[in-house]
Design a protein around this nucleic acid. Structure first.
Length: 1012
RNA sequence: GGGCCCGUAGCUCAGCUGGUUAGAGCGCGCGCUUGAUAAGCGUGAGGUCGAAAGUUCAAAUCUUUCCGGGCCCA
């Protein structure tokens, strides 16, 4: 070693760092996003970036991602954030891909949750909702929704979401209400809307229907009864007569069932008048039992034959106080299915046939193994009844569901023998209906046993009083009824081959839609294929009315397929709603206003006051937003929501649009999963594992939240928590600092001095080749909305190829080479290209940070978000070059590995202290290495390349053949400027402690007026 | 209970139609640098690919069952 002591005086005299092209930038290492982002937002607002984007994109092909409206009743949560960030990234991506990508946010404003809030307010003030005029109540709901739209709008914008927040769409806007009402009228006009009935939870005390969420379960003591249904008939076989299926024929039951009864158990005796069937299960074993001993006067008499589940026979007999009984034989599911029962109160006017229906909801855990089925009094009862409706009709059984209880809890004329009896009083107490029914059953010798039971029973959340299931008229949309064309009446299109039904249209539309991920197609298809008719009515106040009139005598609808004045009614309603909102429907004189002069007898017509289910509202957004706005288009390119919306918005929009337009309102559907806590479980307040977007924004910034979305697999469920966020903070820092170094370095970039492409060194060409490769990945990733792939490719490139390799190697050239150096200028040109490309690629994902970086690079320039994605030249691809450099980088790894051992042994510190001997056996590789400056690549002060075999103990890597490294210290003097050890330090007497290369740099520097 | 989906290093993700010792980034340990410095570089340790059967010469990759988790229904 021949270290020459540096001239101490000279070293003190010259601070060479002042003569280097070191990075210079104001772009801070630490982002301070929570403070910085609002500043950027303010700038975007001041510049009206949204308008600027529209102007910039005027005339381009449109890309429309139609916003699914969030519900306007609370602060945004992490799920909203995920959803809006994904939408925003795609919106921005498409804009930069060259579309006019216009995002119009929307809100769902009607519906129950808002009604509750307003009712709550009234209650707190001691007022009753029913005492408040409907118009006033609706006005309060409107104000409430407006309030939350404002808050959510601000919260969405804080995430960086860009869109027409100044003109969003609202389901409660007057025009929207007018069009929604017009849409349901279209369904009426084409014969798809009909009035049917369905059991709903009903509070007698409040005289109102309740949603599941308005009900709580409390202990309640019910009367229980075991009731005998006599076996009456056995079905014959259906016969085909003249091509028509005849109703089933009936025979007397098999002799062993003569006089037998099927026994049911229920806790609601008052529903017996509503009974229409008895359900059983094919998974339960049943038997025929004979009573052989019974006390005098007992309801169960000796000789009586009962059908029961085997598992429950003992219990039932015990409850019936039977002293002894025997099993006569097994009863199969087939036998049960064939039997028809009589209603136990047949004599009172219940003379219809009671079928036995096979249902999965039946268990043999308690009761008798048979379930009393009153389709107007239970959800499962209703469903099994409707499910069997076709077959029941063939059996000549009327499937109409009786209205046995009125809205005050009294049994009606549909309950002969009990009319006027009270189920539940207006105070919420038990009425006299149960006793009357039980007495009648005793009288009819149909009661086997009775008792009382304490159990959990639904109560109104508000009044805390018990509720009942009650059949109520509701409005439905047919899934399988031929859709009439305008002016047609039923049957007019008979003769066409395929029936044009809503279900058929929807299934076809699903097949024509692209799904991301593809599994969504299957999922939506399954739901549409199996769903029952669509119930669209709600007995509520805050919504859009089902704006039709119904003739109480004929059932005719106006507008409707047979009503002559339909177009006029539609026009009147549309005009009124557009100027006054849907409130017009509830104003005095509305019937005369909309129907006057169009019918002979106004009195025969009833205005339907039910409102539409909010799913119909949001299912119509395509009609009042996409179709109406000139700056959008119909159908949308994409709908994007959480996977729960297969049942929700994707579903209702599909049905609504298929019913009115014959196709889906979207070409593609993208779904994301749900956000879980870090352990993969649901977030919940009680577990304290929630992550609030507001907290993340306050602590780390919106770009961190966005980066979290970008690095997650949104197709699956996502996880978030402290550790995961920290990971993203670290990744962000790495990206940010890499950009920061580029910015600093580019402070010295003079575009006019960029060398010609032909003069670019191999290393620069290699990096451009890699950039072209990454461009392909980025393009492909964006094309499939696979953002983790995009961000992964970019960050891998920035970390592995740039920060750890290219930049590290080129620092010497960039900092130390003379100003005129081609190598230095070529590197600067490439860094400029890299910066420009990377910032644009990342702009949709990290809009704040990229805007900040762009502004640092080009002060005063317009927003990066107005730019297009860069064209990365395919000419930069050079696979042969890349293959050569893959080998060179392998050799580099061997060198750095060898140096690491030297470092560990404290023989060197900086790699510039080394000049290792590299043994390369392979001639081709040796030749390749000889052409390049391996020392420069390995960041050593020298490399001795030799072809001789490696001595024992030389450093090798198992996966790099024929390369061995023997470490050695660099020989020469450490250049005080570049810190490289060379043998030409002092070549220029003006700078005796500096290498020849650095002396040339200093000469240029001095000539340019530099001083230090 | 039913439909659909998911389960690869501490974290986030790659691993195509089955084929050599399962990869990357981040984090973590150790070291270097101090001219990207609350940064940069190097290097190391981490996985029986949820579990078990099966198909196959060969399975993270195919089949079945189970376990765990999610969404939607019931």
């Amino acid at each position: 070693m021949t270290d020459t002591p540096v001239d101490a005086a000279a070293a003190r005299a010259v601070d060479y760092s002042k003569t280097l092209f070191l990075p210079v930038t104001d772009f801070p290492m630490r982002a301070g996003l929570p403070q910085k982002e609002p500043e950027i937002l303010a700038k975007w607002a001041a510049d009206d970036l949204y308008r600027a984007l529209r102007r910039e994109a005027a005339g381009r092909p449109k890309f429309v991602l139609h916003d699914g409206p969030p519900y306007a009743n609370g602060h945004l949560h992490i799920g909203h954030a995920l959803n809006k960030i994904l939408k925003d990234v795609i919106t921005r991506q498409k804009q930069m891909e060259g579309f006019d990508s216009n995002y119009v946010p929307g809100w769902d404003c009607h519906g129950l949750p808002i009604e509750w809030k307003i009712e709550e307010k009234y209650r707190a003030a001691g007022q009753n909702k029913d005492d408040v005029p409907k118009k006033e109540f609706r006005a309060e709901c409107r104000a409430f929704a407006e309030h939350w739209v404002g808050i959510q709008s601000a919260e969405f914008q804080r995430l960086g979401v860009i869109g027409d927040f100044a003109n969003p769409y609202l389901t409660m806007a007057y025009e929207a209400e007018a069009i929604i009402a017009g849409e349901i009228q279209k369904f009426a006009l084409t014969g798809q809307l009909y009035r049917g009935s369905k059991p709903v939870m009903w509070s007698v005390v409040e005289k109102t229907a309740l949603a599941e969420a308005e009900v709580e379960y409390q202990d309640y003591t019910s009367d229980t009864i075991f009731v005998k249904f006599p076996v009456k008939l056995t079905q014959g076989v259906r016969e085909l007569i003249g091509g028509e299926v005849e109703p089933r024929r009936y025979n007397a039951p098999p002799v062993e069932f003569a006089g037998a009864s099927v026994v049911i158990w229920t806790t609601t005796p008052w529903t017996i008048p509503g009974n229409r069937a008895v359900s059983f299960s094919n998974r339960i074993a049943y038997g025929l039992y004979r009573v052989t001993a019974s006390p005098e006067g007992n309801w169960a008499t000796v000789g009586e034959l009962l059908v029961l589940a085997d598992k429950l026979a003992d219990e039932v007999m015990k409850a019936a106080k039977v002293e002894a009984f025997e099993k006569v034989g097994d009863v199969s599911a087939e036998e049960l299915k064939a039997l028809t029962l009589a209603h136990p109160l047949a004599a009172l006017g219940y003379g219809f046939q009671v079928p036995l229906l096979d249902g999965d909801h039946v268990t043999d855990d308690s009761g008798t193994g048979f379930v009393h089925t009153a389709p107007g009094h239970g959800r499962e009862d209703f469903e099994i009844w409707m499910h069997n409706a076709r077959d029941l009709t063939l059996r000549d059984i009327d499937t109409a569901i009786p209205f046995t209880v009125d809205d005050s809890g009294f049994l009606t004329q549909d309950a002969p023998g009990f009319t006027g009896r009270s189920v539940i009083t207006d105070k919420g107490d038990k009425g006299d209906a149960n006793k009357a029914v039980i007495d009648a059953l005793v009288e009819a010798r149909a009661l086997l046993a009775r008792g009382r039971m304490k159990h959990q029973y639904p109560h109104s959340w508000r009044s805390k009083k018990p509720v009942i299931f009650r059949n109520t008229p509701q409005w439905f949309i047919h899934m399988d009824r031929e859709i009439l064309k305008a002016g047609e009446t039923a049957g007019a299109s008979a003769g066409t081959s395929e029936p044009d039904t809503l279900r058929a249209r929807a299934l076809r539309a699903i097949a024509d839609t692209t799904f991301y991920p593809p599994a969504g197609q299957n999922r939506l298809n399954g739901m549409i294929a199996n769903r029952p008719d669509w119930v669209v009515s709600r007995q509520r106040a805050w919504g859009v009315p089902i704006a039709v009139f119904r003739n109480t005598a004929t059932g005719e609808l106006a507008p409707g397929p047979t009503f002559a004045g339909s177009a006029e009614v539609q026009a009147r309603v549309a005009a009124a709603f557009t100027s006054e909102g849907a409130d017009a429907w509830y104003a005095d004189g509305a019937k005369e206003r909309f129907l006057g002069g169009l019918v002979d007898d106004l009195g025969a017509w009833t205005k339907v006051d039910d409102i539409l289910d909010v799913w119909f509202d949001s299912g119509s957004t395509h009609a009042f937003c996409l179709r109406r706005r000139a700056d959008l288009k119909w159908p949308a390119d994409m709908y994007l929501e959480g996977s729960d919306q297969h049942r929700g918005w994707f579903h209702s929009s599909l049905l609504e649009s298929c019913g009115t337009n014959g196709r889906a309102p979207y070409d593609a559907v993208l779904t994301h999963g749900f956000v879980m806590a870090e352990d993969g479980r649901k977030m919940s307040k009680s577990l304290g594992n929630q992550t609030q977007p507001q907290d993340v924004i306050k602590q780390s910034g919106a770009d961190i939240l966005r980066l979290w979305v970008m690095t997650s697999d949104y197709a699956d469920d996502l996880r978030i928590g402290k550790e995961i966020l920290q990971t993203n903070v670290e990744s962000y820092r790495k990206l940010r600092n890499t950009l920061r170094w580029m910015l600093g370095t580019l402070a010295h970039h003079v575009p006019a001095e960029d060398p010609a492409p032909a003069d670019r060194p191999e290393l620069e060409r290699l990096i451009l080749h890699r950039l072209a490769e990454v461009a392909d990945q980025v393009k492909a990733g964006y094309a499939e909305y696979d953002f983790k792939r995009v961000v992964g490719a970019i960050s891998n490139f920035m970390v592995v190829d740039l920060s750890a390799f290219y930049f590290d190697v080129r620092k010497d050239a960039l900092y130390c080479e003379p100003r005129s150096s081609v190598k230095r200028r070529a590197a600067l040109a490439v860094v400029a290209t890299l910066f420009d490309t990377l910032v644009k690629w990342l702009a949709p994902m990290l809009p704040f940070t990229m805007e900040e970086a762009w502004g640092q690079r080009f002060p005063g320039a317009r927003s990066v978000h107005l730019e297009l994605f860069p064209d990365v030249s395919a000419d930069w691809r050079d696979d042969a070059l890349a293959a050569r450099w893959a080998k060179i980088r392998d050799v580099r790894r061997v060198v750095t590995g060898a140096l690491e051992l030297e470092r560990a042994a404290k023989r060197i510190g900086s790699s510039l202290e080394a000049a290792p001997v590299v043994h390369v056996g392979d001639a081709a590789l040796h030749a390749l290495l000889a052409e390049i400056d391996l020392a420069e690549i390995a960041i050593t002060s020298g490399v001795v390349l030799v072809a001789t075999p490696a001595p024992d103990g030389a450093f090798t890597l198992p996966d790099v053949a024929d390369v061995a490294v023997v470490p050695a210290k660099a020989v020469g003097t450490r250049c005080a400027r570049s810190w490289r050890v060379t043998d030409d330090v002092g070549a220029d007497p003006r700078w005796p402690d500096v290498s020849a290369r650095d002396a040339r740099a200093l000469a240029e520097w001095a000539a340019a007026g530099g001083t230090a």
